[in-house]
Write a protein that binds this DNA or RNA. Sequence first.
DNA 1: TTGACCCAATAAATCTGATTATTGGAGGAA
DNA 2: TTCCTCCAATAATCAGATTTATTGGGTCAA
Lengths: 243, 243
Amino acid sequence: MARTALHDNVLDALGQRIVSGTLAAGTVLTLDTIDSEYDVSRSVSREAVRVLASMGMVASRQRVGLTVQPRTSWQVFDPRLIRWRLESDDRVAQLRSLGELRSGFEPVAAGLAATRATPEQCGALAAAASDMVVHGRSGDLEAFLAADVLFHQIVLEASGNEMLAALDGVVAEVLTGRTHHHLMPANPKDEAIDLHVEVARAVRSGDATAAREAMAAIIEEATGAVVDVDTDEGGGPDSTNVG
Amino acid sequence: MARTALHDNVLDALGQRIVSGTLAAGTVLTLDTIDSEYDVSRSVSREAVRVLASMGMVASRQRVGLTVQPRTSWQVFDPRLIRWRLESDDRVAQLRSLGELRSGFEPVAAGLAATRATPEQCGALAAAASDMVVHGRSGDLEAFLAADVLFHQIVLEASGNEMLAALDGVVAEVLTGRTHHHLMPANPKDEAIDLHVEVARAVRSGDATAAREAMAAIIEEATGAVVDVDTDEGGGPDSTNVG
DNA sequence: TTGACCCAATAAATCTGATTATTGGAGGAA
DNA sequence: TTCCTCCAATAATCAGATTTATTGGGTCAA
């Protein structure tokens, strides 16, 4: 494993160090430093640095070296960067940002899906919602999560907008991140599940307004739940909100 | 200029060829081909390819070469990719996608800004809205566009969400792209300008709901305008919608 | 003293050539 | 046919040299 993707290892290591703040903005590195620190050749360090530069995380200048850039210049939609932030202390802030973002685009996606979804997508959506009902009752959290993720991915895909569809990974990260970091508790709320069923129904019947509003209600409820447990990462109430 | 950023030239050239469809999905390249075609060394082609790979546009495999990837695997939020698409025949589709996206996140940003904007940001927002009124009357389209772009950037910045703030470039591209490609006509509508003033007022007074609704109205009107002129890129009606 | 100009050190940028590892496919054996 | 082995193509990596741009400091003249 260490043999393959040599430059990817270096990229990951540097990215995580920058995100975590170990390498603060303004810190200056040199290629030589990276070469010797990770024991790789110039090609490898250069390619890793080139990708970091394309993400706005470092800037390279001759005679100076590689300067770590401030957060404002980062490409925060890069999935790699999102993953690094979710793995770091920055996790809660990242989840909050993503949650606010979701409250914007997911209702829009649901509305568009009501107009554009194919019959197959409508069927898949109903199936996913049904799975959520089943696993919500049985208490199988992992299966519930899987159905939840699938549900939202189908909606995004059915929106017919490739940029919305591209956000599926983001949504999946948020949902799994919340569950696995215990930012939401054990028993999915019936109301939240019902809202998913309602979205599926509205999309099938082509009711864009209803789809949009139901999806907005889903996100709003889930967002509220995160705020509630914001300062209490470990524990959690005995009922939960599902996104 | 051609001397600096050698690898960036290659990156741009390859990216544009892939976006335009000249290099269709499934096409296989080799590093040797790139080396000789652009007359650069291995290091340069490798670094360009590495960035393209990080954008999901090509995948490299030993013994095979570089395979151009289908659109579904592209990182469509990468600003570079957005620029390439706006420069290509794909422009109208890209603008439509971005428009739908805006209708999701901009109202949310306005609502958050109403809660979080600093007094300075409120002042800057009022100033930008005022500029829009002035230049809308005087008919100075470029100055109007600049004020419009600035207005939306302030709102995104004031949202206090770094992912929303990062979308400022996207919004700027949409607004300037629409204007410069004559997807919207000469005289800004008074109603649209009034809505901007209303957003500024709502943000200053902390009225999140009003800010959100006014911003949603702005986007909705602008989106409708694009649909109207969708098949008539060159001409245009004699009144316009402003985003 | 002050300002403009020049120089040398530094580190990225680029080039060159070689070695290594992977893998798709060809060819032979069971 | 089916499976195994070998080969050649190509990315991946390494090592070192050369080129170029930047910049801090020194020199010299006003």
